[in-house]
Amino acid sequence: MSVATYVLDWHRRRRGPAAGAVTTERRTLYVLPTRAGVVFALLLLVMLLWALNYNASLGFALVFLLAAVAFDAMRQTHDNLLALTLQPPRVEPVFAGQPAALGFGLVNAAPRARYALELTAADGARAVCDVLAGGQRAELVLARPTTRRGRLPFGRVRLATRYPLGLFEAWTWCEFTGAGLVYPAPLGTAPLPGGGGTTPTGRGEAPGDEDFHGLRDYRRGDPATRIAWRRAAARSGLPPVKQFAAPRGDAELWLDWALLSPALDVEARLSQLTAWVLEAEAGGLRWGLRLPGMALAPAGGAAHRRAALEALALHATTERSDG
């Protein structure tokens, strides 16, 4: 493995992270024999000694033929990876704890087909593409576990192939500057703020809590008070959660950082706010979000939800500017 580390150091000195698509080129493409290749070489050596010991001329012919085929296969392995374009991944935001799916686009602009391409991440996630015809694009999806909210750097991936004979491996590394987004995990048991001081209608009751609307499956972060325990006992799988329809339009809900106890740490408060955002949006409310230093005016809908979650994800991180 030390060889690979050495090559990696060398590679990083020659090519830094890229913002856009990366096309494999000769100077950053590496080829080494695999373990099977080393075993094959030993096999040929044994066969050579065998031919020598028995003076078997046709045996020499077989050994040399196989050696020549293997040698040519090395070149084919190299060419199989050359001039492929790897595009930075598309990734949908996820909540912390959920795996993110990084969908790398692999484009073969050349007319000839490529075979048995393998993409691996540093954490061992792996995706393969058995055939990539000329002029085609394939999407290779790497699952990446997430633990913390914030930016999810794409990092370095390794594009490799062992085609045709598995005796050599050609590979290159592609590092992308971009990053995906990880929302805070929606956790917290506090009920939606009861329309408190910030709700102009002041009906004294928590909106979204009154009219029983139906049941849906449990999601992380649903308050335990909402779980329909009696029903849950009757069926397997995720426990059902009571859903309440709130009257639309007249209720404006503020999800405010300041409502949460300062005793909670930052992450717990963000998680609680995330859970509220989901709950409010699921309930079809008009809601706004207030964080230290920013506020989102009350609204509803997917775009609003995305903006709010992004703000939560990037709250007090160093790189929130481009969100």
């Binding site: 003076n55 020499f60 040399f64 033929l65 020549a68 085929v69 040519d72």
Partner: peptide
Amino acid sequence: LLVRGVPLALLLFLLFPRIQGPL
């Protein structure tokens, strides 16, 4: 694959140093 290997195989067959066996 086999056909592409033939030229090199031929070269090896003719020029690889031979010694008289058995070892």
